[in-house]
Amino acid sequence: MGVTAAFGGLKDAPAKQLEQLGKGAEVDQVRMRTKFEDAVVRPGGKDGIGTSDKRYLQIIMKVTNQSDATMLAQIMDDALPTVRADGKTLKPAADPDVTLGPRVVVVSGGHAYDQLHPGMTATVVMAFELASGQPAPERVVIGAATYEWYESFFSETHYWVPVTEEAPLTAEDRKKGRTVRYEPVIDTQVSLPVREEAQ
């Protein structure tokens, strides 16, 4: 108890330092390793992303699947729980009933695919549709979670889940009568400048 008191008590443990990284940073998320290469606003219709009459904010990454089985690129939607553009939250969406979130694909040879095979590195694009006339943001900040090989206390089988912690309840939770809320722990933030590509 003396030791606990000497280090300032249990309640006041220092908040974990959030690692701030920039363009080209590589983040080990255990299940995958992600290199943040670029953020660009451009019209769709190329690489199998979107349609040519709309503009998309695309976060371009190199993702290596470090697990031992094929997984879908859309898992990056869970692996990067928050994305903010100039302070405005793009993800998680304010109303999850309206949007299912960004589309995440593997881009290769001008086509969009879905699979990330074990031990292999692929170019992954997370695309947010911009409203028409909406100016391109100057900077996006991406929060990266970490996965763990989790053992279910009930069935004792294993699967991948993002590391979570208890978070304060939101008004929405109270309305729905939830008493506890878990959110993925954000260890690392990556800030990328956004360039704009016409055509």
Binding site: A69, T70, D114, Q115, H117, P118
Partner: peptide, 16 residues
């Protein structure tokens, strides 16, 4: 089908 390598990696058939 899936392919299991000598090292135990499991590959799904490609979606390409």
């Amino acid at each position: 089908a899936h392919l299991i390598t000598a090292g135990g990696l499991s590959f799904d058939p490609t979606d390409r």
